[in-house]
Amino acid sequence: MATDRRSPAPRRAQDRLDDHAAIDHLADDLLPALVAKLGASGLGEIEIREGTWRVRLRMPADGNAVAARRPASGRTGSRAADAPHAERARADSPGAAGTGAVPGSLSTVTAPASAPAVGPSRLVATSPAVGYFRPRGDLSAGTKVRAGDRIASVDVLGIGQDVVAPGDGLIGATLVEPGEPVEYGQAIIVLEQLTEPRLQPLGVAPGEPVPPEPAPAAASIAAVGPDTVASSPIEASPVADANDPATDAAAATDAAPAQPTGAD
């Protein structure tokens, strides 16, 4: 459970400063480059280490969609750790690929409980309903759209429901194949924003409510709320998922940072 991960160990101020510096460097410099690299390379996974920190980005199992399709609510950054059984069950089910699958399946970022959630300048348009995805033929990557524009639709029993742009931007990656089933709230189309939002120092992504508690077990990087707009296909969670065989090898060879406190 999330609370188990908040083991309060006393830490020196210098530790914290070091952590923040490392995280800033990871988020500002490395992550955007890594995402681009992973997308272009066709590799399954990339890992970068920085001091006591490491970042691992992993493509979803099917390898073609660049998405954490299931939008994470603010407190579910540690969902994979909370409910490994559930995640496996969904990932294993035959229909799961189409109807929203594994949170954080693109990447895993090793981060302390108080890691700042930094947001790349992206928004994600989500599905307004359960149905089949129907793209708009006249829109393609790079098309400029305004907030509220209909940028696709979802076919619900033969009736189209609009997928609207959550903000101004350029059409980016489409995360769902035409005709594929989507669920309510599922991320569908990435919008690249025209202006860089200022990264905020204390882990609050634009458009995301300030968490009432100082420390969720893992902050997501610009978590997607189904009704909110801030988003990224990337989600952070603690790497210590002992049930995930894909992370075992790396974890074993790595001096992962001590479980950090959430007190910052």
Binding site: S73, A83, R90, V130, E183
Partner: peptide
Amino acid sequence: RDSLAAQLADEAICIGP
């Protein structure tokens, strides 16, 4: 979203708010 039924199911699908 975090309900036991959704976790135990062969597949779970979000149908609305």
